[in-house]
């Protein structure tokens, strides 16, 4: 490694040591947690760096890498939605369908080069965004289905079908799931510089290129997260609906 590389690593560990030491000194009970998180991040990023280096030499492996990212996202999000039977599979669909479709589209139209260097980070960002939207939307909807049974049954008693009876809940959940993406898009450049922009600038890209790529990613994220939220919401409604009976079996919270 170059001298600058060693300096970067040393600076990173110095910040981790500062945070951990401060937490220990203030008796926040976070000292070991911060240290452990720093070690985990070091190991995970080192391994990812090595794996991606191998993928650059063997591009077809990029497919397996993206599949592993999707699997991890599905397990993470599905675990949060375990009140719904088969949640991990449905989370995989809700995350994977929009995120991979958008990635494929961006590569197919030539917005980004069809190389692992472009495909992996693009898929990663979109999968990450879809995962957050899936978890947020799904959790909010499950809670609403559980807490608002009186209102749902009132609508069903007035002749609504299940889809109409839960429509207000679905709308609220999808909106909640999309709020972070909308806020991120609205505040970009004013409150924070997002990761893609910073990474490209640090990697030597021109500010114009960084801004353009960031814009593509942000706007693609809006569509991907909206679709992910809608997919998981409709799936949850379908899973809790009793076929033919026009009623729901509210999921148990846990």
């Amino acid at each position: 490694m170059s001298a600058q590389a060693w300096t970067q690593v040393a600076a990173a560990f110095a910040f981790a040591a500062l945070a951990s030491g401060l937490a220990w000194r203030l008796k926040l009970g976070l000292g070991s947690g911060i240290a452990l998180a720093a070690v985990r991040a070091t190991v995970q990023l080192a391994v990812v760096g090595l794996v991606i280096a191998v993928i650059y030499e063997h591009p077809p492996l990029a497919v397996a890498f993206v599949a592993a990212m999707l699997l991890t996202a599905a397990l993470t999000s599905g675990g949060r939605l375990h009140a719904v039977h088969g949640s991990r599979i449905w989370a995989a669909v809700a995350i994977g369908l929009p995120a991979l479709s958008a990635t494929g589209l961006l590569l197919a139209v030539g917005a980004f080069e069809a190389t692992p260097q472009a495909a992996i980070p693009t898929a990663g960002i979109l999968i990450g965004g879809a995962m957050a939207a899936t978890t947020l939307t799904g959790r909010r909807l499950i809670e609403a289905l559980h807490d608002e049974q009186d209102a749902i049954e009132a609508r069903l008693s007035l002749g609504d079908d299940v889809r109409s009876a839960v429509a207000p809940l679905v709308r609220r959940a999808v909106t909640t799931g999309l709020v972070p993406a909308i806020d991120q898009t609205r505040s970009v450049g004013l409150v924070s510089l997002p990761g893609t922009f910073v990474g490209l600038i640090l990697g030597g890209a021109t500010p114009e290129t960084a801004a353009r790529v960031q814009l593509v990613v942000l706007l693609a994220l809006l569509a991907v997260e909206l679709l992910a939220g809608l997919l998981i919401a409709l799936t949850i409604v379908r899973r809790v609906t009793e076929p033919g009976a026009e009623r729901i079996n509210p999921p148990a919270l846990g």
Partner: peptide, 19 residues
């Protein structure tokens, strides 16, 4: 059919939910 049944038989729950 459930929606037809619920048109013929109205149910007013103990806690009135206003829309």
């Amino acid at each position: 059919p459930p929606r037809e049944l619920r048109r013929r038989v109205g149910l007013v729950a103990q806690r009135a939910t206003m829309f």
